[in-house]
Amino acid sequence: MKRGQYAVIGLGRFGSSLAKELVKLGYEVLGIDKDEEMVDEMSEVLTHVVVADATDEEVLRSLGIRNFDCAIVAIGDDIQSSIMTAILLKDIGVKTVVTKALSELHGKVLQKIGVDRVIFPERDMGVRVAHQLVSPNLLDYIELSKDYTIVELSVPKRLSGRTLRELDPRAKYGCSVVAINKKKGVIIAPTATDTVDEQDVMVIIGTNDQIESFESEVIG
């Protein structure tokens, strides 16, 4: 198998959405689910699909799962199957195992068995939506770690034409503008002389406090 091939186990709302997006991004995706209807639905979208029980080690081995670059366990509401599948994937030797957690406790168990990354789609989406609701200029919010966050902030009219040197987020607030999304394209790693215009989107990285200060004092 070439690098960049993914196996998505569990083709419910989250798993199918993730699998479709990976295909759009140009990767080959194997979809696995016990439900024949779900597999049929995804058969024309994904590279390969198979009806299978992912808690059966022999089945996983027969699918060559060990050769995949990454396996995502997106099993919907069966915590036992999710944990069993994750254990088998680690034992078989899949390079990277990412697992959806249904609760904080489920997530702790997955971390203890050595899953490479645990994701909480519902919790994380709730956090993002809450931030968007309380901050009208905030378009997106992603927590990178306990300390650092990356956000997208829309540029209001009154800041149109200002340079990053004038805004000076790093010196004044400690956060950094890592990209500016303009109508004509994205500026990655902008310099101090780059300007922002109304309806541009600034991508900013920093701590929550730094970004909050910058947003309240500069963006308004």
Rank of each mutant, 00 (worst) to 15 (best):
D78L: 12
K95E: 15
G10W: 00
R66E: 14
S176W: 08
T163A: 11
I79Y: 04
L105C: 07
V115N: 05
R13I: 07
K112Y: 05
I79K: 10
Y173P: 06
E212W: 05
I65R: 05
R162P: 04
Q111H: 09
K184Y: 05
L138M: 15
E44V: 13
I187K: 09
E44N: 15
P190L: 07
G220D: 14
A179N: 04
I113R: 06
D56E: 13
D194L: 04
N137K: 15
F120P: 08
N208W: 04
A7C: 14
I150Q: 03
Y6E: 03
K112H: 11
T163S: 13
N208C: 06
A189Q: 13
G126Q: 11
I72A: 11
T207P: 05
H131P: 00
P156K: 11
M125Q: 14
T96V: 13
T55V: 09
R170P: 05
D35S: 09
D116C: 07
D116P: 07
V109G: 08
V127G: 02
A171G: 03
A171E: 14
K182R: 15
A130N: 03
P121L: 10
V109W: 08
R158I: 07
H106D: 10
D77V: 12
L164M: 09
C175G: 07
R123C: 05
G31Q: 00
P169V: 04
F120Q: 12
V51K: 08
A130I: 00
I211G: 01
A74H: 06
G107D: 07
V45T: 12
M202H: 09
V127Q: 08
D78W: 03
D197F: 13
V94F: 07
S216Y: 11
K34N: 06
H106L: 09
S213L: 14
D78M: 07
V73D: 05
G126R: 12
P121E: 15
E198Q: 12
A7M: 13
P121M: 12
D56P: 02
T99V: 15
I9T: 10
D33R: 04
K108I: 09
E41S: 09
I92R: 09
K146R: 14
L164V: 04
A179G: 08
E122C: 12
I180V: 14
G10L: 00
H106W: 10
S82M: 09
I9G: 05
V98S: 09
I32R: 04
T163K: 10
S82C: 10
E37V: 05
I9K: 00
I32W: 00
K184F: 02
V8F: 11
Y6D: 00
V129A: 02
D140F: 12
E198Y: 12
I187Y: 05
Q111N: 14
N208M: 06
T47S: 13
R128E: 15
E212G: 01
I205K: 06
V29F: 03
S176L: 13
